[in-house]
Design a binder for these strands. Structure first.
Lengths: 237, 237
DNA sequence: CGCACGGTTCGGCGGGCACCGAAGTGTGGC
DNA sequence: GCCACACTTCGGTGCCCGCCGAACCGTGCG
């Protein structure tokens, strides 16, 4: 047995955690970056609370989820951005199938279109909103996508000028491409993507719709995006 | 049910393909970027040929492997670089466990150390060799890692001057970070990483050791790396 | 204090799937 | 044409695991 074989059991175990439909539904739901209670997830996934409790135990033990107990509630969220990226990458790999299918009901279609317009993807912006921002940054020479994916010096200046501080943390990259699964194109993730999303929500550029991942750009947000990045309102609809 | 639920079955199915230890061993073996026969994989994984045949059927049907039939042989390889990246990412997530464990036998230790010195990771260089090249590129301002991961204009010029053409293909990024699972640091992947690895093998900078993924830097390779990137021999040992 | 409620534990059930060996199919060599 | 060989197909077996309901535990509210 060569050395790499040692990785096979671990790889299979990790994949096995995601390989269950109920657990997969939980992970996708948690991609909104927030903490859910066990009960919410059970209802969301359509299984008994007892069943979901066992699933959460496995996901936490496997290091995919972090838990936080408050009173009689058990809150769980994705352990870190690495896990979020992993789930996102796996989902993107599947997306070609999903894109072929069209939503059936009007309600699902409407919810889907709101999600397609703009949403959060763990801690950064995605959907057409995320793409529009990423494209605008690229078009103005602030983000370089032709030889990889990195902010330029001008890009660092733009964040500074916009009053969005970029604090480098540990080993998380400042900028990273995240493949959007509705638009099928890369958008800005990493520290810069998270900071931008945070700022957009804090400054009221956009607001969450209900309790979903979908977000809506406000009129103040439209003005700010137009002023700072010359993004037209048409690109956001 | 919201629109994102549609992704859960697909996600679970994809993960399920990797969630079996035998299939995981196949995928890891195929990370060397070459095509293996069904028999080789069966022996490698330690299962009956019939068992492995079924596994290959699933992996091919799931789009993870591409097959090529030649006479009475069935060759399979990873379907594309996206799949390779996915497996690599999953393996990297598991690596913290593997790093804690030390190889037991001397033979495994020796094989492991050759792998750690230098190896191919799908179609680019990894191990200390890959890290040394990536660090050298970064140190000379040819590759930018501080604000993401992208070649600089000077970097494009270096590839051109070195006689390594970079043909942009479809949507595959020119430069991408791949997390090394022995060194725990990012190294150059993507079109540029593949071209560099290809050139290194073609120009005799390094040669494969036996039929393994491990590669050894030749004396001609040491001279070339020293001349082009000022990499000292010490960094390769 | 007692009830309601969120979460967990346990036993039991059922389905799915990885495995093997044996028989079958097709290719290539002698 | 025959045999060797690589791979595949087919039954059969056994294990693993996801599911539920029921009983249990702790928190918080009235």
């Amino acid at each position: 047995m060569t050395e790499k074989d040692a990785g096979a059991p671990g790889l299979a175990r990790l994949a096995g955690l995601i390989a269950d439909e109920t657990r997969a539904a939980c992970l996708l739901a948690l991609l909104d970056g927030r903490a859910w209670t066990a009960g919410e997830l059970a209802r969301h996934a359509g299984v008994a609370a007892s069943t979901l409790s066992e699933h959460l135990g496995k996901l936490v033990a496997g290091g995919l989820l972090a838990e936080e107990r408050q009173g009689r509630h058990r809150y769980v969220r994705l352990a870190d951005d690495r896990v979020a990226q992993l789930v996102e990458d796996l989902a993107a790999q599947v997306a070609p199938d999903a894109a072929a299918r069209r939503p059936r009901t009007l309600r699902a279609s409407s919810a889907g279109s709101a999600m397609a317009r703009g949403r959060t993807c763990y801690d950064h912006l995605a959907g057409r909103l995320g793409i529009a921002v990423t494209d605008a940054l690229t078009g103005r020479g602030l983000l370089r996508q032709d030889t990889g994916f990195a902010l330029t010096d001008a890009g660092l200046g733009w964040f500074d000028a916009a009053g969005i501080p970029l604090r480098p943390t540990g080993r998380r990259p400042l900028a990273r491409a995240c493949l959007d699964w509705t638009e099928r194109r890369p958008h800005l993730a990493g520290v810069a993507g998270a900071a931008l999303c945070r700022h957009a929500l804090d400054a009221g550029w956009c607001v969450r719709i209900g309790s979903e991942r979908a977000v809506k750009v406000t009129s103040a947000g439209e003005r700010a995006l137009s002023r700072l990045l010359d993004i037209g309102a048409a690109a956001l609809r």
